[in-house]
Structure formats: structure tokens, C-alpha cells
Design a protein around this nucleic acid. Structure first.
Lengths: 124, 124
DNA sequence: AAGGTATTGATAATAGGTTCTCATTATCAT
DNA sequence: ATGATAATGAGAACCTATTATCAATACCTT
């Protein structure tokens, strides 16, 4: 039986108010004000639990670090090279030629990802 | 002084005939027919050397593994979920709205990456 | 060809991130 | 409230990828 612990509520609240995918370390820092005793192991356990439930998913950016976000509508991600944070870009679409016929050689395309890099509004 | 060793030539030849970014492990396997004594440490050393020279660059895919490719014109990457290999997709463009004004909130976009996922021609 | 030096290969060591362990604590059903 | 049990926190352990070590070897200049 899954308990509604303060730790799990805190992690969920962090996800619900996030503006982009978060590192485990960021989740820990953001959740600690709501749950001061929270430890890293519990963050990792909660991430696994939420991922198994299909509530969150992994996002891997070119910095090779794994971030997590609530499962939701597709969107692009923006990685700020200054503060190293990742933001959702909800309005971002990969428009143009989404037809798979564009891909030569018989590749079957099942999904796509668009990653932007630059400087975020805060760091400019 | 940099020596033209058989090991380095073999690694360079592997890059030159690759059809996509390669894992260090893949480089080792592909280069060993040309240089049977080649070891993993030398592959890593050569990768660092080539990267410092600006000859190759890292490519990170959602499987969290670092691959390397020759520096060249921009292109998309296709990751086969069956064989786990990554292929270049030279004809792939992120067309549509490359204008940075499209990004809300004052983000300055300096680069973009498009990753495709699916099944490659061989695995279909 | 020979010597100086860069490079190699095998292995140990490292590093970072994640998971495990286990005694303690919190949650939930009663 | 109470008891059964799930969850927690601290740290150890683990895992994988990469780097360092060092004696042996290969390369390049002479």
C-alpha cells in the first residue's frame, strides 16, 4: 500500500510548479523547504515510484544529466548555457516537413525531440 | 610532437566511414580489424585528442550515452530503438519557424538539435 | 640504424550518480 | 489510540564510464 507521506507530497508539488525538467538534486533543494528532513535516497525512490506509475518521465539533455518532468503534452526544451537550467517551451513546434518520407533509407520515425540551447531570460 | 600511430589512423578511418555518431565501444570494435592490439584506453585518449583539436564532437542521445562524430555540417540524428545505433539524417532540417521571436519570455536561442527515434532500415 | 621521446596496453584508480541496507519513524486501517 | 507495515534518512555499497599509472613499445629525427 502506498502511503501519502509528506516527502512524496513535497516532490509532487515541486513537479507541479516546475517550469521545466528538474535534476534529482534540484528536486531535493526545491522540496526541502516543504519537508526539511527530506533526503536524497527518498527523492530517488520517489522518482522511481512516479516513473513506474507513468506520472513522470526522463528528459536527457546534451549535458548528459537526467532530468524529470510530469508527463504531459509534447513540448520542446530549452537549455540555458549560463545557469544550466532547462525550461519547457510550450509554443515550440517542429513544423515544416514532419512527413516520414523525408527520411531517406527506410527509417520508420516514431518520435522526435527538439532541444534548444542558449541563454534564458533571467541570465541575459 | 604528435605521432601518426596505427591506432590513431585506425580510429580516424572509423570516423571517416561511419554513418552516424559512435560509442567508444563501437569505435574500439570497428577499429580493431585495422589494429588488433588496440585497447580501450587508447580509444579514449584518441577521442580526447581529436576533441581538443576540434576534429570531433560529442553527441548525447536520450539513452544517456556519449557518442562521437566528425565535425561537419549540421544534421539530425536518428536513434534506432531496436539495434540502439545512431544514424545521421543529412536531409533533415528543422524548418518552419526558426525565428527566435517564436520563443516566449526573452530566451536567446543559439543552437538547436533535432533527435528522431524509431526503427532503422536494417531492423525493420 | 639508433636514440630520445611520445604512445601504447593492461590494470588500477577514480568519479558521479544511483541504489541498497537497516534501524528508526510515520502512515493507515482498525 | 494501537498495531502492522510501509517509508524514511544516513551512509555504505555499487555500477558504469572514463582517466591515471607505468613498464614496454613504436615513431620520428638524425
Amino acid at each position: 500500500m502506498a502511503h501519502r507521506t509528506r516527502q512524496r507530497k513535497a516532490v509532487q508539488e515541486v513537479f507541479d510548479s516546475a517550469d521545466g525538467p528538474l535534476l534529482p538534486e534540484e528536486i531535493l533543494e526545491l522540496a526541502q523547504p516543504r519537508c526539511p528532513t527530506l533526503g536524497a535516497a527518498t527523492v530517488y525512490r520517489t522518482l522511481r515510484l512516479l516513473r513506474e506509475r507513468g506520472a513522470i518521465r526522463e528528459v536527457v539533455m546534451p549535458d548528459q544529466r537526467v532530468r524529470f518532468e510530469n508527463v504531459g503534452p509534447h513540448h520542446c526544451h530549452f537549455h540555458c548555457r549560463v545557469c544550466d537550467r532547462v525550461f519547457d517551451v510550450p509554443g515550440c513546434r517542429t513544423v515544416g516537413s514532419p512527413r516520414e518520407s523525408r527520411i531517406p533509407g527506410g527509417f520508420r520515425v516514431e518520435g522526435r525531440k527538439v532541444l534548444l540551447r542558449g541563454v534564458c531570460a533571467v541570465c541575459r
